[in-house]
Write a protein that binds this DNA or RNA. Structure first.
Length: 508
RNA sequence: GGGCCGUUAACUCAGUCGGUAGAGUAUCUGCCUUUUAAGCAGAGAGUCGCUGGUUCGAGUCCAGCACGGCCCA
């Protein structure tokens, strides 16, 4: 406290002065005010003469964002959650006493204003204050009014400042909320039941990823934060819920990047009596609808690219994509040695012999994925990299599966579900046997899941959609941190555990 | 984990060849009753990310560390 800047001291001093004058700094008797946007909407078209006819007085509340004082009068802009409106405060109109208090108000304070509407010389709709009142005293100055706040670290750590200062940031998160609503609307209106399944799993499953470990004291049990809800949602299919979806968080203990946050939002849905091909149609329909709701158009712009979400979208098999988009000679595709050499040439050497599918997906990530700007379904993933997907009826080396790519990124993953318990058990066993020291492969077989399949799971298809990436796409955001309110960052100095402890643990 | 870049006032940024720190906004004081990046005059405000090193002297050069960004793994 002792080394607080002058500016903070001044604010506190001012607050004390106000209190001495009997002003309550944090009152709690303010009734919900009218919204700036609602007033603008109704009276935005009224000219001065028309406004003079309006006898009504309006009461608004919001944060002072700009303040221009002229001695015995002032203009200010306040911002509420709907928008902004200009306020005019004149000493001879509000009276000496109120004006004296008003002069102590700062940019950043939240105030309540009541008065009639008029238009200024520059024709801006403005409230002529009859009454101004402090609602919440701000003890910290707002960032610079013109450049706002640019420092990404401050923006992510102190998102509240970012949201106050950067209207486009607030807008992105409003759109995120609309997208979430749109997803719910789509699935509930198509007969899907929204469900919640455990976030803490005693066996890792449903995806290949390193989990976070936590501990339950009373049970004396290590638990994993879920990497995917898949195996539980399919248990619900067994239980008779033919159409279910879950829209919630997954956790993966991996690197942080422009498109990865350790906790992220996933939508998974499962539909009985459908195939992965049906889901391609659903996905097209869903994304097109979301784009229409948000932009009124199925053609959108993302980071300079024009992307057309109008159905139908391109479909390629993984094999075709490697040849046609990735430029891998067709005759090389089944030659592990040559594939390994190609990967090594791309600075991605692989150690040991891998399943063929691993070479393909690695090459795909490097050579094909970044080029898939327009929405593209990639199908026929090798069975050895798709342990939960149904084998293709004609060619059992591949599965009835697709991944969706847009703007060079994976957005969704779907397949016809494997519901033969014998095949599922065999695949689990093979996975565990070949796991080696790969921490991304679940070390334990979920026998209860196999038992569920033994009860009989109806034929079904399921899909997972990366919601954060979808929001990035639809809000033209370059980083996942721009669509998550509080992205994961290292703690600041003095926050959380000591650095030394963390380092020591990391070394073990 | 590796590479590159950044970290200077509350915010946005300058800071030359190593010579004791600058601007705009914000703040404070004075003037100002139609401004909107209001204006005019004046003032105050700094752990130059941290720790060492080189040097007569370091915001500046060197090393390590921290945090962040981007790229790669």
């Amino acid at each position: 406290m002792s080394q607080d800047s002058q500016i903070l001291k001044q604010r506190r001093q001012k607050a004390e002065e106000l209190e001495e004058w009997g002003v309550t700094l944090f009152p709690n008797d303010i009734k919900p005010p009218e919204l700036a946007a609602a007033i603008q909407k109704v009276y935005g078209s009224y000219d001065q003469n028309a406004l003079e006819e309006v006898q009504e007085s309006f009461r608004v509340a919001g944060r002072i964002m700009a303040l221009r004082r002229f001695g015995k009068a002032a203009f200010l802009h306040i911002k509420d959650y709907s928008g902004r409106i200009q306020i005019h405060v004149v000493r001879d109109h509000v009276g000496q006493d109120q004006y004296k208090i008003f002069k102590k108000f700062d940019i950043g304070d939240i105030i309540e204003v009541e008065g009639r509407l008029f238009r200024t010389k520059t024709n801006e709709l403005t409230i002529e204050a009859d009454r101004v009142r402090l609602v919440t005293k701000s003890f910290r100055p707002l960032p610079e009014k013109y450049h706002g706040i640019k420092d990404k670290e401050i923006r992510y750590r102190r998102r509240y400042m970012d949201l106050i200062m950067n209207e486009d940031v607030a807008e992105t998160f409003r759109k995120r909320s609309m997208i979430i609503q749109g997803l719910r609307r789509y699935f509930t209106s198509n007969g899907f039941l929204e469900v919640e399944t455990p976030m803490m799993h005693s066996i890792v499953g449903g995806a290949t990823a390193k989990p976070f470990v936590t501990h339950h004291n009373a049970l004396g049990l290590d638990l994993y934060l879920r990497i995917a809800p898949e195996l539980y949602l399919k248990r619900l299919l067994v239980g008779g819920f033919d159409r279910v979806f879950e829209l919630n968080r997954n956790f993966r203990n991996e690197g942080i990047s422009i498109q990865h946050n350790p906790e992220f939002t996933m939508l998974e849905f499962y539909e009985a009596y459908a195939t992965y091909e049906d889901l391609m149609v659903r996905t097209e329909e869903l994304f097109a609808q979301l784009a229409l709701d948000l932009h009124g158009d199925t053609r959108i712009r993302y980071q300079g690219d024009s992307i057309d979400l109008t159905p139908p979208w391109k479909r390629l098999t993984l094999e075709e994509s490697l040849v046609e988009v990735g430029g891998v000679p067709r005759e090389e595709l089944h030659d592990r040695e040559r594939l390994a050499r190609r990967l090594a040439d791309l600075d991605n050497p692989v150690k040991g012999e891998l399943p063929l599918g691993k070479y393909w997906t690695k090459l795909f990530d490097l050579l094909v994925e970044p080029k898939l700007i327009q929405p593209t379904f990639i199908t026929r993933y090798p069975t050895d990299v798709s342990p939960l997907a149904r084998k293709n009826a004609e060619d059992p080396t591949v599965t009835d599966r697709f991944e969706l790519f847009i703007a060079g990124r994976e957005i969704a993953n779907a397949f016809s579900e494997l519901n033969d318990p014998r095949d599922q058990l065999a695949r689990f066993q093979e996975q565990v046997a070949n796991r080696g020291d790969d921490e991304e492969i679940p070390p334990e077989i979920d026998y209860d899941y196999v038992m569920a399949l033994e009860m009989g799971m109806p034929p079904a298809a399921g899909e997972g959609i990366g919601v954060d990436r979808l929001v990035m796409l639809l809000t033209d955001s370059p980083s996942i941190r721009d669509v998550i309110f509080f992205p994961q960052l290292r703690p600041e100095k003095g926050e959380g555990r000591s650095k030394g402890k963390q380092k020591e643990k990391a070394k073990k």
